[in-house]
């Protein structure tokens, strides 16, 4: 099929799929960022078991393959009498994995903070949580914009996991395999999806380096 024929026949679906990919990406990245911050606070807090839990969480979800996690969520959880919708499973998988990487980036972002600042905060009488909220997290976020940008792109690529379950509406990867199993979409069907992915990644990359220029702390 040529590109015009494809767009004529499946144009609406491509648009839907693009919106689905964007939706999954935005929702899962926001949640991943939130959970990543919480996990990071646990990992630096003075309570040892919580630190251990945070480290454990990160090691599990940083190292598990996305496919394995999704399969566990979709096919194994029902055996424990927990049945989630396909959408929920995809969302959980695309939150848990990036959240662990998010925490790793925040940890290395934190390591750029000068110990003097911590001492100053203590001298001013800030409590641990105040210090985390006002001194540590803001700087960790500001100095990890570029890794977070890459993480957002990686998260977008991870949402292609959704093609492994019958999710409706389909996202970009699912749509391509659908088109190619129902008709011979050929190379063009792939090129359209790939281009949409790449354009999104390009925009994210640009936005990321713009934000990085604005907020980076020059030391």
């Amino acid at each position: 099929m040529g590109i015009s024929e494809l767009l004529e026949k499946y144009g609406d679906r491509y648009l839907q799929a693009l919106l689905m990919t964007w939706r999954l990406t935005v929702i899962s990245f926001s949640l991943a960022l939130l959970i990543g911050i919480v996990i990071t606070v646990l990992r630096v807090c003075p309570i040892k078991p919580l630190r251990g839990f945070g480290d454990f969480y990160v090691q599990i979800f940083r190292n598990i393959p996305g496919a394995a996690l999704l399969i566990l969520l979709v096919y194994a959880l029902p055996y424990l009498k927990i049945t989630l919708s396909y959408y929920a499973c995809v969302l959980i998988a695309t939150v848990l994995i990036p959240s662990s990487f998010c925490s790793e980036h925040l940890m290395s972002g934190m390591n750029t903070i000068d110990p003097g600042q911590i001492e100053a905060a203590r001298a001013l009488g800030l409590t641990f949580l105040q210090m985390i909220r006002r001194i540590v997290i803001p700087q960790a976020l500001r100095s990890s914009v570029l890794p977070m940008t890459n993480l957002l792109v990686a998260d977008m690529l991870t949402t292609s996991l959704a093609s492994q379950v019958p999710l409706r509406p389909m996202e970009l990867t699912g749509l391509v395999s659908y088109i190619n199993t129902h008709a011979t979409g050929g190379v063009m069907a792939f090129v359209i999806s790939a281009a949409l992915y790449c354009l999104t990644a390009l925009v994210i990359g640009r936005a990321g380096s713009w934000i990085d220029r604005k907020v980076r702390i020059i030391r």
Partner: peptide, 10 residues
């Protein structure tokens, strides 16, 4: 870098 592995696999 901008295309998911699954798309290449398919």
């Amino acid at each position: 870098r901008g295309v998911p592995t699954l798309l290449f696999i398919y």
